[in-house]
Design a protein around this nucleic acid. Structure first.
Lengths: 188, 188, 188, 188
DNA sequence: AATGAATGAGACTTCATTCAT
DNA sequence: TATGAATGAAGTCTCATTCAT
């Protein structure tokens, strides 16, 4: 990669990260391009050298975020083990990601119900979501649990609910919650 | 009630309901006053005869919504029964409310993470939320379940997660989810 | 005058007086029809039964105010006396009117430079103004003062300046100012 | 100064001057941002790149105007001479300023009685006003004139009245007025 | 005559986006 | 590439005025 491309990549990453922080804190509509540029310490117009529009910037945030998630889960999926252990791994992995990418998850959860802003983004995230749910279902099925479909949905909803509360509240005991949830599945 | 007051109340309710539908579908920021007026079939300025601002309109939506919720749960709380039965009642009641006031819940869930628009509204809803969680904890405690605090948080997160998915997706099997959840608590 | 007409006149006067107070305090542009109606304790629409528009109401205020001024000066003009005494009378009369109709004068002075609001009103007041100045000039001329034209303009400007400061400031020593001004003309 | 800063300053000054002309002609409330932009030949939104609000633009007009006045009087104050000559200088200086900055003075006089729009602006101008009056009083006192306080107020009111009439009327003989006024003080 | 609900033009302001430098 | 001045559509809100009751 040339010096030039490196610098380009650096600026892009700076803008993406700055935008993510602001979108997460103030919301997508509540964050202006000007504010992002100011916070990043670059000029207003620079953003348009890298992104076609505000929405394209958001899209890039999601692309990178999704890539991170995928990578994280892909790594976890390679670990062999009993189905229940895989569920445990999934839960712990989710908690880990939530903590590490809190801003991204906040943004995702805050935009999930705003269909106006995000046809394309929601598509992709829904696909990922469906995939995760399918994996959970397979694990439950393999573990011989009855009505694995509803059970998968239930576990998924529970994880999502915990995530949402963690993102919403300060001092949410997410580790305790994860441990309790895992224990419930182990004790069956 | 005078003719004028009747008309007033009618217009207010029309605006509140129209705004709720649009806020729920397009988001608060994505819905303009003009759009609300057009959808309601009234003039642009009418809203300002009844509400001080767009935010005041939102506040009224929440006031009415919170009143509905309170009334619904107050009625349910009177029903005596074993603690587990009360949990069952609470879950069924929540499902009932979700179905009946889908638009309101969508709005609430979509705004929960937007700290910019909502100091006051969030306050009140959080208070209600905390109260519900406390009730769940009491029930769990009375039923002799260990670590009732985390358990309450877990049940609450699960219900919230189910609600969120119901609000997010078409054709979510919420009744099946509720039944499965109830069964889990009954079988302990 | 019929009972009906009396009541009509009463309502009109109430609106005129209320509007005068508010226009004087908050300015013409800063006072809404709604505010006038509220302050007068009548309905918003009532005003339009008596006045064609907000501007027509202002016009009526000026008509009545001008009538008062005219009457006051007409009475004073009848008093015979030396020319200097007539100047004294004029000054004292003006001070008297300023105190008695402070709100009206404030309104007049605040609108005199706003050509946008008031073609018609300014016309009439200017006519009166010219007439008063002419009278002053005649008196000065009769008293044998040189360049009576400029002198009249000067005295007029002085009186107007005193009036303006009286209307602008709290606790302006207008009586002392009048006495000093009179003394200057007497001592010539 | 950079190219950007130059352009910035140019646009700011263009807007300030255009706004001053329009405010002076049509009044502050009677002049819309759209009208200012159109008259200046720029876009509607440009103003907001330089001023926070319409009121901030007005404030800038006053800041620049006050600076001009201060500079003008500061220069005059340095000239030594008898007290009466200083009064003469003050009067001539005022006339000069009135002619040179007619629009600004018209605006000032038209806003002086509108307490609603102007807390901050009026403050500063009042301070300047008080200072000028105090200087007049000192001169009169030094010249041995009795009741210098009232005399200062009288002279100040006279100058203000002349200014007001000059600003109000076309073809006002302000030079003749100034000469006459000066002569009165010289002949004592 | 009196009421006040309803209207809609127009005001101020924001902000994503363009483009000359 | 980087800058930031400039644009103008669109948003919220105000208010004089109309009109059915």
């Amino acid at each position: 990669m040339s010096k030039h491309q490196e610098k380009r990549e650096e600026s892009k990453t700076l803008l993406v990260n700055t935008a993510l922080q602001l979108f997460s804190r103030k919301g997508y509509d509540g964050t202006s391009i000007r504010a992002i540029a100011a916070e990043a310490g670059v000029s207003l117009g620079l953003m348009y050298n890298y992104f076609e529009s505000k929405e394209a910037l958001l899209l890039e945030i999601f692309n990178r975020g999704n890539k991170d998630i995928e990578a994280s889960f892909a790594k976890a999926a390679d670990v062999p083990g009993a189905e229940i252990d895989q569920l445990e791994q999934h839960i712990l992995q989710t908690v880990h990601l939530l903590k590490e990418k809190r801003a991204f998850w906040r943004l995702l959860h805050s935009l999930r119900l705003q269909s106006n802003v995000l046809a394309q983004v929601v598509e992709e995230t829904n696909a990922q979501t469906a995939y995760i749910e399918a994996q959970i279902r397979q694990n439950l099925e393999a573990a011989g649990i009855p009505s694995p479909d509803l059970e998968a949905k239930l576990l998924f909803a529970t994880i999502d609910g915990i995530a949402h509360h963690y993102l919403l509240l300060e001092d949410y005991p997410i580790d305790g919650m994860a441990a309790l949830l895992i224990q419930k599945y182990k004790s069956r």
